[in-house]
Design a protein around this nucleic acid. Structure first.
Lengths: 188, 188
DNA sequence: GTCTATAAATTGATAGAC
DNA sequence: GTCTATCAATTTATAGAC
């Protein structure tokens, strides 16, 4: 943990740049600079820009799984777990209301690609949210179909909220909507 | 209406290409080809790619305003109007479940820009949805704050739904969610 | 107004020294 | 493994003939 490999440094730099500028508008020179690594060196770790993008998505998915697993361990009540997720999103409010959701905006951009492998991988990020929330709704006693529907309700609300908040540059919109989502969770 | 100006042809071609490939990945050569116009000719109508993008967003906003105004004229009941909007979205289902929402995905991509003018313009597309739906909820008898909240609920759900449907390449997800939104509207 | 040719800049990727 | 220099391709934008 004290020493991060250059590979991980590059992934972290690329994640940030892709999030802030979009994948297409981010050059490998941007990423190399962010990681404080010479441009030519990038190619020692990743054959192509796309390979680096794949590694970034993979890191996103792993990070999500880790956080969800952590929440499962630390919070006993499924309703409290869902509220914890909302609290997490709220913590990233300032950047979310500027750049949108790191996962949703990345998935949206990749949707324009032809590359099926990338699209599937990006969908995996959103799938992580859906599966985990669905599990919580099941534990709240909802039947299979309802749990599925509620998880889609919730993640659609998330994604739409982050999209609007970013477009309007409005932390206030995000704040109010997340607050109302908390009430919604409590009412279920 | 029978003869479309080359300028309008270019805007239509750019709109399609930006929607399908994203703005950053679409070249002016792509657009010229789609419009069946020589590349050099593009610059006679638009000084830069960004100027063309601005014209595309402007066209989007105008088109939205026109459709909303048309709905106001043709449909008397505000609840039926909201259902009409859902029906409209459903008509574009196959492309929405492939490329996302033409307005939302464009706004999302532009959010990564620095250019404030573009961001504000893109936000205008989403603002059109919010203002119109808010007006309908007001006419349904909701108070100011509730109408605002409900319009955000609805448009966030829209945007999230189109994002997920595109990422999962799932018309089914979109279909089911829109159907549930219809029930939601009827229950209000 | 329309088109061809091309300039100018950017950027993904490689070669090869150390 | 690391870095510099550079290639090759792409793409925005312009020049100038018709």
């Amino acid at each position: 943990m004290t020493t991060k490999s250059k590979r991980d440094l590059l992934i972290a730099a690329a994640r940030t740049k892709f999030y802030h500028q979009g994948v297409a508008r981010t050059t490998l020179a941007d990423i190399a600079q962010e990681a404080q690594i010479p441009l030519g060196n990038v190619y020692y770790h990743f054959r192509t820009k796309e390979a680096l993008l794949e590694a970034v998505i993979e890191a996103h998915v792993e990070r999500l799984q880790t956080r969800f697993a952590q929440c499962d361990r630390e919070v006993a009540d499924p309703r409290e777990r869902l509220l914890t997720l909302i609290r997490w999103e709220r913590e990233g409010e300032s950047s979310m209301a500027r750049y949108g959701c790191p996962h949703g905006s990345l998935a949206q951009e990749i949707d324009k690609e032809e590359d099926t492998k990338l699209v599937d991988q990006a969908a995996g990020m959103l799938q992580s949210y859906l599966e985990w929330t669905e599990k919580q709704f099941r534990q709240l006693g909802k039947d299979e179909q309802e749990a599925k529907d509620l998880s889609i309700d919730m993640i659609c609300w998330f994604q739409g909220t982050f999209l609007l908040a970013a477009s309007f540059r409005s932390p206030e919109l995000m704040d109010r909507k997340l607050q109302r989502m908390e009430e919604w969770i409590r009412s279920l």
